[in-house]
Nucleic acid binder design. Structure first.
Length: 772
DNA sequence: CAGTGAGCGAGCTTCCGCTTGACTT
């Protein structure tokens, strides 16, 4: 019999802790929450003070049963879930589910997984803090009420299967509004002047590059200035040198890790988290879902030792960082290597890269500041009041820069300041060339996944465990798409003064190139418009912050959670009812003009299945005609001509193998149809697909299918052994069957296939209903 | 996986936050 049962949230944590505690302790994990509001219906009893209707989550039934069994025999059950609102609630639900007496239940917390922290926790147990639990219940119930009343309203008014919520709807709003800003952005240009000088010093020639701080609004002004430069003398008028310091960034939180991995390694938020999870489970890094920048004393002393060993004492400067982000709960340490002496790890390439980033960032955070010397040199122009400025930067002591430099989102136009030659006051410079180039203002950047996470964190919306899932949700609902945009060529004017001559050129550059940025779709834009019109309070950027304040008051025992929810729900529910009754379908309908053939109205709108064009009015006697939009078309921008073009489908484009070939646009995009089979048109515009190209597409797919076929049987053409994304499988008619281990897919006979298909172990699992 | 969109009506969809495997074709 076990004396002590310790329950934590994560199995990897359980394994670590078990090592610290002796044989008298059994450590198990709950795998997060085990109880939630019931899945079906609202799950909240509105009539009775918003009583939550809880159930053990289906996938946690076994875990709860196992925990119950182990807890029965234990003398003491230690609830060691995280020290935050959710963790407290998990402990409370566990206590309720395990049905253990209060006397043998103890609640303990630790924020770092070290022997001393755990020992300290064990000797300082407390009871479950019911106020904190109530704050969690309020949070949970509020999110359910908002999500499960707003979403059905969208199904009625906009389109089925949509969703809305406190977090995701604000994330969508950010992206929609950024796009509006971009659309309203007026590009302007100005002229930037850069001069290249030369100077002889100590028998060698040095180059000096300087920029005019002022930019000229017009070409005329820029040329006038170049005229003045012609024949001017350039003299060093002022040299200013000042010391500067650079400090390292704090260690990683979930959000900053996602941002840096995106900028430096090009990882998606989702990928970063998956890799970090692997590193965590193999014991290489600490927990990866955290909002804390704090390092344990143990970690700091390990870092110190490592820095001393690798770089010397001068490079050590330990620090404690304080969390600045809103609503941080700091239940864990910052993300860091478990053992600082492991500079490298074995593993997959991506794991090594991410680990390297974490190692460097952590080590750098405990290193000395970099000491710099910044120099500004003013260069006068004898025939003008303007002055050129040359900037230099010398690193006197590299400090943390030896290992790590934080990157930024902004791709700046500024050139990096370098080392300046030894110049003195009064020196004359020889002008080699002065260039005035037209530069354009840039619209605000679209969000990437990582910069959206950064913004969400700033607003206090979402938690480390939900950033990645939220970003997936808004893409899965097709509110937002992640896309690349090819840049477009743009010309700019450039005037060059060289050898006393001013030359003007028209140059080309690429502008607007974007990779992996988030764009709102028509549906995202429309849903946002609807919610902003009727539920702007929920979409308010401060909504979460203000309810969090209320949750804090509940946690402090100063307010009743049911009361807080009641005050919110009353007006919210009224608004839901009112909107349900008083508003019509919200389709974003836009009248494009009249169909020249029939004279009927042509509309662009959102229909049951997404963006479409409608010819004819809904209430007219004749049924309107419909056509779906192509990818990259939008109801906001499509022209009447483009809209009418869509009605030219399905197009018959000839015959092949004695059967008709048609091109059409369906639910999953454009396709070629031939002999009852569908072939997706992925690359080109379906309007341009002719017979020849269609045959190519068909043959390509057939070839692909051929290569993926391992076995075929003449007597039963519906039975095949195929090679899929996840390895070989058997296909019979339209059902797929797993091939058990030990069977060689290359050698399966028809009888083998049928035998395998009849074994219930290999039966196709019920498909998880997941709409893409 | 595939040709819809109004309307008829049944039955479905949906939230956020805490955790991992099981699973996909």
């Amino acid at each position: 019999m076990i004396k002590n049962l310790v329950i934590v949230e994560s199995p990897a944590k359980a394994r670590t802790i078990e090592k610290f505690l002796g044989k008298e302790y059994l450590v198990m994990s709950s795998m997060g929450h085990v109880v939630d509001l019931k899945k079906k219906d609202l799950g909240v009893d509105i009539e009775h003070d918003f009583e939550p209707q809880y159930e053990v989550s289906p996938d946690k039934k076994k875990i709860v049963a196992d925990l119950r069994k182990s807890s029965k025999g234990a003398k003491t059950v230690w609830l060691a879930t995280d020290e935050d609102r959710e963790g407290e609630a998990i402990s409370w639900h566990l206590a309720n589910q395990l049905k253990i007496s209060d006397e043998k239940t103890k609640r303990i917390v630790f924020h770092e997984i070290t022997k001393s922290a755990i020992d300290r926790a064990i000797s300082n147990p407390r009871n479950i803090d019911i106020n904190l639990v109530n704050a969690q219940q309020a949070r949970r119930v509020l999110d359910r009420l908002v999500g499960f009343e707003l979403s059905p309203l969208l199904w009625k008014k906009v389109k089925p299967a949509l969703s809305a919520g406190r977090v995701q709807s604000v994330a969508v709003r950010l992206i929609v509004e950024r796009e509006e800003e971009i659309n309203n952005f007026k590009i302007s240009s100005s002229y930037r002047v850069i001069a290249d000088f030369e100077i002889e010093k100590k028998e060698s020639t040095h180059q000096v590059r300087a920029e005019l701080p002022k930019r000229f609004k017009t070409k005329k002004e820029a040329v006038e200035f170049l005229e003045k430069c012609r024949g001017s003398e350039f003299k060093i008028e002022n040299i200013e040198t000042r010391p500067a310091k650079k400090s390292p960034a704090p260690p990683f939180t979930t959000s900053t890790l996602q941002q840096e991995a995106s900028r430096k390694l090009g990882f998606s938020v989702d990928n970063t988290m998956r890799i970090a999870q692997n590193l965590y489970e193999s014991g290489k890094i600490t927990y990866m879902r955290t909002d804390s920048v704090n390092l344990s004393n143990l970690a700091i002393s390990m870092a110190k030792k490592e820095i001393e060993k690798s770089y010397g004492k001068d490079y050590v400067k330990t620090r404690k960082f304080a969390t600045k982000s809103k609503g941080a709960q700091e239940a864990h340490e910052a993300i860091r290597p478990t053992f600082m002496e492991n500079k490298n790890i074995k593993g997959r390439e991506q794991e090594q890269k991410l680990y390297d980033l974490i190692w460097k960032r952590t080590i750098a955070s405990q290193m000395s500041e970099a000491l710099l010397e910044k120099t500004n040199i003013d260069i006068s122009v004898s025939q003008s009041k303007e002055k050129f400025v040359a900037k230099g930067e010398i690193i006197k002591f590299d400090g943390f820069l030896k290992v790590y430099f934080e990157s930024t989102d902004e791709e700046s136009q500024e050139e990096k300041a370098g080392v300046l030659p030894p110049l003195e006051l009064g020196d004359q410079l020889n002008m080699k060339e002065i260039q005035a180039s037209e530069r354009f203002t840039q619209h605000p950047p679209r969000y990437s996944e990582a910069s959206l996470v950064k913004k969400m964190e700033e607003l206090g919306i979402g938690r480390p465990s939900t950033y990645a899932p939220t970003i997936s949700t808004i893409q899965r609902r097709e509110y937002v798409v992640k896309e690349d945009r090819k840049g477009e060529p743009r010309s700019y004017k450039q005037m060059t003064l060289k050898n006393d001559d001013i030359k003007e050129e028209l140059k080309k550059e690429n502008s607007g190139f974007e990779k992996g940025k988030l764009f709102p779709t028509d549906i995202g834009t429309l849903v946002n418009k609807f919610l902003m019109e009727y539920f702007d309070d929920i979409l308010d950027y401060n909504f979460t912050a203000s309810v969090e304040k209320e949750f804090d008051e509940i946690a402090e025992g100063r307010k009743e959670w049911n009361q807080i929810i009641k005050e919110f729900y009353g007006p919210f529910h009224d608004k839901i009812e009112e909107t349900t009754e008083k508003t019509k379908k919200f389709s974003g309908e836009r009248l494009l003009g009249k169909d020249p053939e029939t004279g009927k109205n042509v509309y662009a709108k959102i229909g049951r299945y997404g963006p479409m064009i409608q010819i004819g009015d809904t209430d007219s006697e004749e049924k309107p005609r419909f056509a779906g939009l192509k990818k990259n078309q939008s109801i906001g921008t499509i022209s009447l001509e483009e809209a009418l073009e869509l009605f030219k489908f399905p197009r018959s484009i000839g015959e092949y193998e004695g059967e008709e070939l048609t091109v059409n646009i369906g639910r999953f995009g454009p396709y070629v149809r031939h002999k009852n089979a569908f072939y997706s048109i992925k690359k080109e515009d379906p309007s341009n697909v002719d017979r020849e190209r269609a045959i190519e597409i068909i043959e390509e797919k057939r070839k692909q299918a051929d290569q993926n076929t391992i076995r075929e049987f003449k007597e039963r053409p519906d039975v095949k052994v195929l090679k899929g994304r996840y390895g070989p499988y058997i296909k019979i008619d339209k059902k797929n069957f797993k091939i058990p281990k030990g069977e060689d897919p290359e050698k399966l006979s028809l009888e083998d296939c049928i035998r395998i298909s009849e074994d219930p172990k290999n039966a196709p699992k019920k498909r998880f209903r997941k709409k893409k």
